[in-house]
């Protein structure tokens, strides 16, 4: 596969390591009343879509950026690649 890195252009997927669902960015609030349940869901419950999937890839043999890659699990078509840091900020994560 080829991942079109937002900064570096098309790069071979072999340069990356895969983590999984990009929902891992949405780490729950530890002080919430439902923290235990929230972390359980965060840690263990994943959808397994036959189709578009947003997932985290790390450019380990490259610039060490985490990327959010939108990949179709049926065709491997990659429709979007974003810097995970930008995604995290857009989702309201900060410090």
């Amino acid at each position: 596969m080829i991942i079109n890195h937002p900064l570096l252009g098309p790069r071979d997927a072999s340069e990356f390591t895969y983590l999984g669902d990009a929902k891992l960015i949405d780490r729950p609030d530890w002080q919430s009343d439902t923290a235990a349940q929230d972390f359980y869901e965060y840690g263990y419950l994943r959808t397994n879509p036959a189709g578009e999937h947003r997932e985290l890839w790390f450019h380990e043999a490259g610039d060490r950026s985490w990327l959010v890659v939108t990949r179709n699990t049926l065709t491997h078509e990659i429709s979007a690649v974003e810097m995970a840091r930008d995604v995290a900020r857009a989702q309201g994560r900060s410090k």
Binding site: F58, M83, R89, R93, K95
Partner: peptide, 19 residues
């Protein structure tokens, strides 16, 4: 060494992007 570094970058970039 490598998995921990990867994990640290995950925490830095994906969880606490403004640190």
């Amino acid at each position: 060494a490598l998995p921990v570094y990867r994990h640290m970058e995950f925490v830095r970039q994906c969880l606490y992007p403004d640190m």
